[in-house]
Design a protein around this nucleic acid. Structure first.
Lengths: 339, 339
DNA sequence: TCGCAATACGGCAATATTGCCGTATTAATG
DNA sequence: CATTAATACGGCAATATTGCCGTATTGCGA
């Protein structure tokens, strides 16, 4: 795909806007990679000079880099929608932008998936879901159960219908938003099925690029009955949903540190971190990048489907506050309290 | 994705090899687009000069363009596998290369899909499949039924097991191969679900890029029960499998002509041809290219699944000779004759 | 408070890519 | 067989991109 000079400028403005703070050419170049713009930082600086001249950006300080001017802001907001609407990659980006989680404070909103199921199956469902979390096949260890009448999707103002309950899980793309706030741009590449053997991840059996699908990969795999999360949890062999991502290799130490913090918050879905510039589970990464495998937030939902419970999944369903999510271990208590 | 100079040279050699005849920079540039190389023809000529100097290519004649030398041939064959193995786009390319169909003669091999189903369901299956072809929702109008013991996949030497029959359909990627032989490089972009309203195609409801999936899109949609081919055939409203492709706009007249010839051969799966450089059903095409929508060869198989017949699909299953495929209208006759 | 280390910038020169154009060659046509 | 039209090539100059490097600024630690 050939991009015109104007398109590149538009995208530079866009990432500056998304970031919400000044940035240097280097950081901008990294962010642009996730948007199909592959230029050196030097080239970015040349574009920035043009944007400066046009009054759309300005040099904030020699240390901080460029920021948007009021005029630049206007340009972004009126400018053409860059996103190929409909593709999952675009939705991920949009939700990451709207999400706000402060790692330091341990609070804020997260991207969530929802799973609707018959209320009468609640007890059985929890019996299925719990061991999946216990086997560490979920995205972190938090889970929320909502009863009929509760709003389960703020954006769409969707309400849990009578006779149903909603199981809300933390979506693994939340991690991208959390890391981005810490200055680390993670790009989601593929959703896929990861084969476990003897409780150890072995290889991806299927991959589906987020940038090339209008349907969430794991939703699709679940509907197609291609997962075997329960088998994996019970025997140590099976196929579970996982996501392949990458980030700039320079950020590796920071990634490991943040991962530890996430563990304490019950948000650790990171299954493996690769070696810089080396393929991870057979999947090559870009120059100067490191691979990352994250477990899918929908794995518990996949287990429900496998168990024959009629579920209706919606990934990337919306945003929800972290504090509302109990640890799965405390679930009994919470569900008894009701909504 | 940044490509090194060597990688670009490798790919130039590769397309020359695949093409199997001399080509000019312009044609090479077109072909390279399908391989993630986006360069002007002038730039290609600069690379060709380097390759000439290295003795890998030579100027065949001022008119015909470059061809591979023996040394160049060796280089391609030893060279690193460029393909991201596993992704469907790579498989499509591989099969296109091996396929040989001469439009002029109306004979040669085609890429096929196979569908295994219980032999006792044969009569019912034909009742389901026939109207799908009659409604022109298949890829052309040809269909082969194989009985137990017949080889249904030459490459894998797979045999139809006892108690089963195999339904063999022409895969829509065969078109790419046919057109390529006529000098028109068609690139398969997306497999998806196309919504019909009142018997007319309206829009794509789902898309899945061939370059970003390891599983055939339509196989996936069928397994996920997302198709409604029968409903479409019966009521004129529904979701059927279709593929979005594009080709260089200059070839438009030739495409239309070839389409007419294909119709006579019962291989017409082309549902719509776009306007040069204009989006087709909402999907934008590249600069200087024209969109094309082709019906999926597996649509009849989708109808079977919808009808509750236990099917096992394998798309891009292998190659089969055109002459073996009867018209679906003559199917009774053929099936009676047995295998 | 001072100095260091880190970071971002932009000058400069080397490449890489592209557009434009005149020329050579050849298939096809009359 | 002569002529025409089409096609491919490569020269040249204009851009675009990149690597390398010295300088300016500033957060942070001593």
């Amino acid at each position: 795909m050939k991009l015109t000079s104007e398109e590149i400028q538009q995208r530079i403005l866009k990432v500056l806007h998304r970031l919400g703070r000044p940035a240097g050419s280097s950081q901008i170049a990294e962010l642009l990679r996730g948007w199909g713009v592959d230029l050196s930082e030097r080239s970015i600086r040349l574009y920035l000079l043009q944007l400066d001249a046009a009054g759309l950006t300005q040099l904030e300080s020699r240390r901080a880099g460029r920021s948007l001017t009021a005029k630049g802001l206007a340009e972004v907001e009126q400018g053409p929608a860059i996103e190929r609407v409909g593709f999952v990659a675009g939705q991920i980006d949009e939700l990451n932008y709207r999400m706000g989680f402060r790692l330091r404070a341990g609070m804020g909103t997260l991207v969530v998936n929802t799973t609707l199921l018959p209320a009468r199956d609640e007890v059985a469902a929890l019996e299925v879901v719990r061991p999946v979390f216990a086997a560490r096949l979920g995205m972190g260890s938090r889970l929320l159960v909502l009863r009929a009448g509760a709003v389960y999707d703020v954006a769409r103002a969707a309400v849990v219908p009578r006779g149903k309950i909603a199981l809300v899980t933390v979506c693994s793309v939340s991690l991208n938003g959390i890391f981005l706030k810490e200055g680390i741009p993670i790009t989601s590449r593929y959703g896929g099925l990861l084969e476990f053997r003897n409780r150890l991840p072995a290889r991806f059996t299927e991959l589906l690029a987020y940038g090339g699908t209008t349907q969430d990969p794991l939703e699709l795999f679940i509907r197609a009955n291609m997962t075997s999360v329960r088998k994996c949890e019970q025997t140590g062999n099976g196929l579970v949903g996982a996501s392949f991502r990458e980030f700039p290799s320079v950020a590796l130490p920071a990634v490991l540190k943040i991962r530890d913090q996430l563990r304490l918050l019950g948000l650790d879905g990171i299954l493996a971190v690769g070696v810089p510039n080396q393929p991870l589970y057979g999947i090559p990464v870009g120059e100067g990048r490191t691979g990352l495998v994250v477990l899918a937030g929908l794995n518990p939902a996949a287990a429900l489907e496998e168990a024959g419970i009629a579920v209706e999944n919606r990934s990337l369903a919306g945003l929800l506050d972290y504090v509302k999510f109990p640890e799965f271990r405390h679930l009994n208590m919470w569900t008894r309290r009701g909504e």
